[in-house]
């Protein structure tokens, strides 16, 4: 290091060669890292991602296909398996639209208006993300279960919520509750409201402004929020496990079915079902990257 301060390059025949060497060795930009640091950071972070992310994913598919394609496909002839897939789709089909409508309403009032208690509302919307899934299931058991607050009344009227579809849907709605709202709100805030106001002054009513101006404007982040919500809805384990009661062919969703199969040492079926959810996760990531790219572009264009 000491030599650098006293650098004096030779003149004459070797000058050009010496200069190129000097440039390569010394002329590092002030904001770029030395090669050893780049190498260390990249090796550590790529190694981490490989061990924690790539290996588990690869393992799911390897185990699923351990006994070949036929064994893999045969898994999906089992009635309990197909039932779990249908149940999962049914739950997602109810929970995701519910939370999408809520997410749009919440984003509309949080992004566009100022009112007392807005901060509190934002915190409450975020809350389900930080509640343990087990607690999320527990609160519904305590509300609707036999020993719960409304339990005796529900029993009298013969309405089953816990250990039945409504309970599964409710707890899924709870854990996936914030996804659409927290993705759409910042986008709506960033894009401003000039276009909506322009549409209104042109005589459009509230609903048509919303459908023709707002929704197209935020469509990419809306799609992103919906697929994230969907991924979580189809994959929720802890909360659903508490309220479902694990009744085969009735209340086992895919993740719960995976647990049952795994605990019965049926590894190929367990990983085969898991591979479907892993594929869904990969698809979610692909759509996520694409939509954030489009959403950022929309934001950049709006800023120009």
């Amino acid at each position: 290091m000491a030599g650098i301060a006293q650098l004096n390059l030779p003149s004459g025949e070797d000058a050009t060669r010496a200069r190129i060497i000097a440039r390569n060795q010394l002329a590092r930009r002030a904001t770029s890292d030395p090669l050893w640091m780049k190498a260390t950071v990249l090796i550590l972070s790529l190694g981490f991602l490989f061990v924690f992310f790539v290996l588990p994913l690869a393992l799911v598919f390897q185990e699923a296909f351990r006994k070949g394609w036929e064994a893999y496909l045969k898994v999906f002839e089992d009635r309990a398996t197909t039932h779990s897939i249908w149940l999962t789709l049914k739950v997602a089909l109810i929970a995701v639209p519910l939370n999408t409508v809520f997410g749009l309403a919440a984003a509309w009032c949080v992004a566009h208006f100022r009112f007392r208690g807005k901060q509190l509302l934002s915190v409450l919307i975020e809350l389900p993300l930080w509640v343990s899934p087990v607690v999320a299931g527990l609160i519904y058991v305590l509300l609707f279960g036999r020993q719960g607050l409304l339990g005796p009344w529900l029993f009298e009227k013969d309405i089953k919520i816990i250990f039945a579809l409504p309970g599964i849907v409710l707890s899924t709605v709870f854990v996936t509750f914030p996804f659409v709202a927290r993705v759409v709100t910042p986008q709506l805030q960033a894009l401003g409201r000039a276009e909506e106001e322009a549409a209104l002054t042109l005589g459009a009513n509230g609903w048509s402004t919303f459908w023709r101006v707002t929704v197209p404007k935020i469509k990419w982040s809306l799609i992103y929020g919906i697929i994230l919500c969907n991924a979580r809805a189809m994959g929720e384990f802890g909360a659903v496990s508490v309220v479902s009661g694990h009744i085969r062919n009735q209340t086992n969703t895919m993740p719960l079915h995976i647990e049952v199969l795994y605990n019965e040492y049926q590894f190929v079926p367990a990983f085969a079902v898991a591979s479907l959810l892993a594929l869904l996760a990969l698809l979610t990531l692909v759509i996520k990257s694409a939509t954030t790219w489009f959403a950022d572009r929309a934001l950049r264009n709006a800023a120009l």
Partner: peptide, 21 residues
């Protein structure tokens, strides 16, 4: 750019010295 050309601070060449030196 590489090649000809130099920057000198009071007689000593600093053309490819990093900012911190």
């Amino acid at each position: 750019n590489e090649g000809e050309g130099a920057i000198t601070f009071h007689g000593s060449e600093v053309t490819f010295q990093s900012a911190y030196a």
